[in-house]
Computed example of a mutant assay.
Amino acid sequence: MTEKHLGKEWIHGLLMIIASLLLLAAAPRKDVFKGAVDLVGEILRYPEYPAAALERNARRVSFWFADKSALKERLDFLEEENTRLRLAWSVGSASHLKQELDRFYGYARVTLREPMSWWSEVRINKGTSDGVFFGAPVLHNGHLVGRVSSSEGNYSWVELITSSSLMVPVVIEETRDLGVVAGDGEGGLWLLYVPEGRTFSEGMTVSTAMVSEALPPGIPVGRLSTETRNSGSAYLAWRVVPGAGLTQLYALEIFGEAVPGGRREGRSP
Rank of each mutant, 00 (worst) to 15 (best):
P47L: 07
E48G: 06
Y49R: 15
P50A: 09
A51V: 10
A51R: 10
A53I: 04
L54F: 08
L54M: 03
L54N: 12
E55R: 13
E55F: 04
R56H: 10
R59W: 03
R60M: 06
V61R: 12
V61H: 11
S62R: 13
F63I: 08
F63G: 03
F63S: 11
F65H: 14
F65G: 02
F65Y: 13
F65A: 05
F65S: 09
A66I: 01
A66W: 10
K68T: 12
K68M: 10
S69F: 06
S69C: 06
A70Y: 07
L71T: 11
K72G: 02
K72P: 00
K72Q: 11
K72F: 10
K72L: 14
E73V: 06
R74Q: 15
R74G: 14
L75P: 03
D76S: 15
L78T: 13
E80H: 14
N82P: 04
N82F: 09
T83L: 14
R84S: 13
L85N: 07
R86E: 11
L87M: 09
L87K: 14
L87E: 15
A88D: 10
W89E: 14
W89T: 07
S90G: 00
V91L: 06
G92S: 15
G92K: 14
G92I: 03
S93D: 09
A94I: 05
A94M: 06
A94K: 13
S95F: 01
S95T: 13
H96A: 14
H96I: 05
H96G: 02
H96E: 11
H96C: 03
K98H: 10
E100Y: 02
E100A: 14
L101G: 03
R103V: 00
R103F: 01
F104V: 11
F104Y: 11
F104D: 08
Y105E: 11
A108I: 02
R109E: 07
V110S: 04
T111F: 01
T111A: 03
P115K: 05
P115Y: 02
M116V: 12
S117G: 03
S117C: 03
W118C: 03
W119M: 04
E121M: 07
E121F: 02
E121P: 00
V122G: 06
V122W: 02
R123H: 12
I124K: 05
N125W: 08
N125A: 05
N125C: 09
K126L: 08
K126F: 02
G127L: 08
T128P: 06
T128W: 02
G131P: 09
G131W: 02
V132Q: 11
V132C: 08
V132A: 10
F133A: 07
F133C: 05
G135R: 04
G135F: 00
G135H: 01
A136G: 08
A136S: 15
A136D: 15
V138H: 09
N141P: 01
N141W: 01
G142S: 06
G142C: 02
G142Y: 01
G142H: 07
G142K: 06
G142I: 00
V145P: 04
G146C: 04
G146R: 07
R147Y: 01
R147D: 00
V148I: 15
S149P: 00
S149E: 09
S151W: 02
E152Y: 08
G153D: 12
G153K: 14
G153T: 14
N154I: 07
N154D: 14
N154M: 05
